[in-house]
Amino acid sequence: MNGTRLVDFPSHSKIPERDIGVRPILEVNGLGIDFGGLTAVEDFTLTIGRTEIAGLIGPNGAGKTTIFNLLTKVYQPTRGAILLDGKDTANMTTVQVCHAGIARTFQNIRLFQDMSVMDNVLVGMHQSIKGSLASAMLRLPVYWKEEKRARQEALELLSIFHMQDMAGAQAGSLPYGAQRRLEIVRALATHPKILLLDEPAAGMNPSETGELMENIREINRRFGIAIMLIEHDMSLVMGICEGIAVLNYGRIIAKGTPKEIQRNPEVIEAYLGKGRGD
């Protein structure tokens, strides 16, 4: 996958060749946000293909998580437009954006710690679980059927990470790596069209990171969804991302394939600083 050809898409963005002809999942145009007098993100323009694995990198404080908060409407953008699957999200709330197909994980894990692993996944499926309160309280056959279906689906999602045997455990008691993976499962349970991963490999050792890369590829293939990830681990970013955007001081300074990004002098400067004599 790491040789995907990016092709031009209107509005000076590139998406993978295989996604041409279908509507991009995300078209962000001129997005910006000010906090008081401070501009945190400015003129963020990016298109993500239907099944693309995209990366968002940049030094600490560049505004990467702010972008995720804007996409999920945790923050209201000051400027610009976000089209999710062709629909303008300007008037949508966080909940509506989730129902429209964005799911995310968090840089600092935010699982429902006191609930079981299974219940965490079922919370993600909240919107898709049918059945009224009455049918649940009266234990009608409809309820049992739906409950069984939901649990079955939750186990299937957990099995991506071989976590099906932990379903009864309390989420907060899981080891760190398993908590990170559970967050991804919970996000998948909302049936997203695009999955935003905020530093999924943080705190993982190289072998765990390698496994995570395989998992991300599998999710991308199996569900046919787009994935956008923020990550500092360059082996992961360069290994699985097809398109990469580099953010510095709230602005995109480079976009392109991993190879292009690695050679880009502005990117090198942002990460390493200016060399003497330049």
Binding site: R104, F112, D114, L122, A187
Partner: peptide
Amino acid sequence: KTKMGKAMRAVSEDMGAAQLMGIS
């Protein structure tokens, strides 16, 4: 046992995360 009950527990633990999981 019900999804509303799970939603209640989720909101009481982390309101922001619950919203991002699509819970009103």
